[in-house]
Computed example of a mutant assay.
Amino acid sequence: MQTLMTPATRIGLSVAVATGLYGVSFGALGVAAGLDVLQVVALSALMFTGGSQFAYIGVIAGGGGGGAAFGAATLLGVRNAVYGMQINRMLRPRGWRRLLAAQVCIDESTATAVGQRDPGEQRRGFWAAGLGIYVFWNVCTAAGALLGDAMGDPRRWGLDGAAVAAFLGLLWPRLSAREPVAIAVACALATVLAVPFVPPGVPILVAAAVAAAWGWFSGTKVR
């Protein structure tokens, strides 16, 4: 057991708990948007990418149709395809693991893997975060959907802050040189400027575009 509980595994599980708890908010907001419990649970089990899920129920809550909601969710899910290419190159999953890796390849699992230098730790970090978040997120989604109005406004519980804290914990060790700090500041500024003008979830795509452009023009590999 001690061998399995490596630093990457501990990081992955910590991120899983912090991020998974935010599923309570999705469950409650999904029911409030007019979906039933089974529909909300199915979204988390099948779609399983937080930004896309919140975009979907945001459109539904605003009176939009299923097509518009699906389009918004798909737009935000494009980033997962980019993550998938990186994870495929890094971990080389085969057989059924390839399908499972595709399902749990999200922001947090990718960031946990990329944050490790040892190939074995990259693998352990990815699976600990990906599978851990999948379990916690779906359990918490069901809990939020079932509790519904009894929770009140889920945002006052501060669960979104836990997810942000998890991301900061992954980012902080990477800021060991001037260029990563400069990229982080530029991406944060781009995100803040984009928030008032674009739908929820799109600012992270703007930040990714800024980071990619920086890497392209500077001739360095942005990790």
Rank of each mutant, 00 (worst) to 15 (best):
M1C: 03
W137L: 09
G115R: 15
W214I: 15
R223H: 06
V181W: 04
R156E: 05
W214L: 13
I183L: 13
L193Y: 00
T112C: 14
A18I: 07
V104N: 02
A68S: 13
P180I: 08
A69F: 04
S25L: 12
L159M: 03
P196F: 06
R98W: 02
V104C: 04
G20E: 01
L205P: 10
T110M: 03
G71Y: 08
G20D: 04
A142S: 02
R156D: 05
V78N: 05
L205E: 13
R223Q: 05
A211D: 03
C105K: 08
G219A: 12
V210R: 14
G71K: 11
L46N: 02
A186H: 02
P200F: 15
W127Q: 10
G144Y: 00
G20W: 06
G67T: 14
A102M: 14
L75Q: 09
F167K: 12
C105M: 06
L13G: 08
T112M: 13
A32F: 05
L189S: 03
A45L: 11
G63P: 01
I87T: 02
L189T: 05
A42V: 08
A45Y: 05
V114T: 08
F70T: 15
G132S: 11
V104F: 02
Q116W: 09
G158T: 03
A145S: 07
T141H: 06
M1K: 01
A150K: 03
G71T: 12
R92M: 06
V40K: 05
D36N: 10
L38R: 01
R174M: 14
L131K: 05
G23Y: 00
Q86P: 02
N138G: 01
A45S: 00
C187I: 02
G30D: 05
G132A: 13
A33Y: 09
L43H: 04
G125A: 12
S176G: 11
A142I: 02
A102C: 15
L159G: 02
M85P: 00
V82T: 04
A32D: 10
S44F: 04
S44A: 03
C140W: 07
T191M: 08
P7K: 12
N88F: 10
A8C: 14
L99R: 11
L35T: 00
V114E: 03
P180S: 04
Q39M: 10
S176D: 13
W127V: 08
L91C: 09
V206F: 01
V202P: 15
G77R: 11
L146F: 07
L189I: 06
V202M: 14
G201I: 04
R97C: 07
A28Q: 03
S218F: 03
M90W: 06
P199I: 13
T141M: 07
T141E: 10
S52L: 10
V206E: 09
T49K: 00
I60C: 10
D149G: 08
N138A: 05
V37Q: 09
Q86M: 05
T19Q: 03
A165L: 15
